[in-house]
Design a protein around this nucleic acid. Structure first.
Lengths: 241, 241
DNA sequence: TATTATTGTTGCACTATGCAACAATAAAGC
DNA sequence: GCTTTATTGTTGCATAGTGCAACAATAATA
């Protein structure tokens, strides 16, 4: 919810007032779906990474700019999914606590303590390539397993839920695995990704048949895992040119 | 894009600054999909109905309030689909023209001439029940066939396109016909609605089989159309209690 | 060499859907 | 009254997709 320009900019000048961006950044690792969470020193507060929109900046450009700051990655799969504007989410307490913990005097009319409507985006990133960067206010930025999230501030928990719901609904239409996996992977890993997103087990042979019939996978050499069984093939996505 | 409180409120006081709502209100009539469009006197400008969010009001509540003002209907199917915030859409010219045509002096710093990010909602209404109401600035509010829209101001054309795209994608998941049709209807009308939304013809027997197998339709008495052929049954949706 | 675990594949049953055909029927033409 | 016409409700058939179970292949281990 915060940005690096805060301390030198007590009025929030240069940003669109009352409008924020929040990001649910998905990664896939150890057969688990994870998201990036910010942690604030001395507060036990956890939040989604976020930012603000500059006065002369497209909403979409702002989203890409902030995301690049958080993950170090450009050219990322990014999609807007919902805008959150309930009055309930207007609670200055957590942010006041964060500012206090940072040693700032808390002015009650500080721009960060006003009401915000926030546009939610989700991103899909290759876990191995993302380099999480905490912003000026936060001091840790780390991956959390989706089902073991800490308690998040404000309505961020429901923002995550809505992002996941959207991800499920678009799983088939958009080629989501393409963005969450490394260059090559086994069929089993791909299936685990689908199962994790959908939250339900899938039939192994049907899944393999369906994926192969899509014509988007190229079979590569085998990978010898060292386990006592048949070695699985590696696959990679064929670039839709 | 405007609201009735404009003339007595030159600063936009009481509203969240820079944030607007725009509505794509779908109706179905004469076998055609239609939407509500506002027309501004002496300008030849056409726009989507819209409004603003009060400072102490949920985003969702604001949407329902504005929609009720436009259609005279409450308890309407309403869904947020996208938030539009490109810089391109920031063009004060059309609104200045509208204000001028209304006989107002155009102050260049008027709040309506500033940049807005707008949250897009689509609504599904029973055409026969909706009572379009122009707002204070507009002087006509009328249904237009989707493929015969006038040239819309700003980016409203792409807002309509995005709304239609969303409608298509959710057609099966949500029970859309339920909101767009009258109490009872023929299978043919239901099929035409689906075809209009999807933009492609559907197979008659397959469609009938699929709809009946859903178990959401109740067959009523026949309707004698006066035409020289078998009379079709009427159906109505079974209320999911 | 036999065992074990996992992978790739295939057969079968079941469901969904496009297409074509057929029977039913309301009104019009004769 | 009988035939014709247009549309509707229904059914049969071919095809495609999917769950389930089974089987063969195979890399490492015992």
């Amino acid at each position: 919810m915060t940005t690096a320009t805060d301390e030198t900019n007590p009025d929030g000048r240069g940003f669109l007032p009352g409008l924020a961006l929040d990001f649910v950044i998905f990664g896939f690792h150890d057969q688990e779906l994870k998201i990036l969470i910010l942690e604030y020193k001395n507060t036990d507060l956890f939040a989604l990474p976020g930012g603000f929109v500059r006065e002369k900046e497209d909403l979409e450009s702002a989203a890409r700019r902030v995301l690049a700051q958080r993950t170090g990655l450009t050219d990322i799969y990014l999609e807007q999914f919902h805008t959150f504007g309930s009055l309930q989410r207007y609670d200055p307490a957590p942010l006041a606590q964060i500012m206090q913990a940072k040693g700032h005097a808390v002015q009650p009319d500080h721009w960060l303590l006003r009401r915000f409507v926030t546009v939610g985006y989700y991103a899909l990133v290759d876990f191995t390539q993302a380099v999480p960067q905490p912003d000026a206010m936060a001091d840790r930025c780390a991956w959390y397993e989706l089902h073991q999230l800490p308690s998040l501030m404000l309505d961020h928990k429901s923002i995550v839920a809505k992002a996941l719901e959207t991800l499920r609904e678009t799983l088939d239409r958009k080629l989501i695995g393409f963005n969450l996996l490394e260059e090559s992977f086994t069929m089993h890993t791909l299936q685990r990704l689908y199962e994790t997103v959908l939250g339900e087990p899938l039939n192994r042979s049907s899944f393999q048949r369906r994926m192969l019939s899509l014509g988007i996978l190229q079979r590569l050499e085998k990978t010898y895992t060292g386990k006592a069984h048949k070695a699985p093939y590696l696959y990679r996505f064929i670039q839709p040119e």
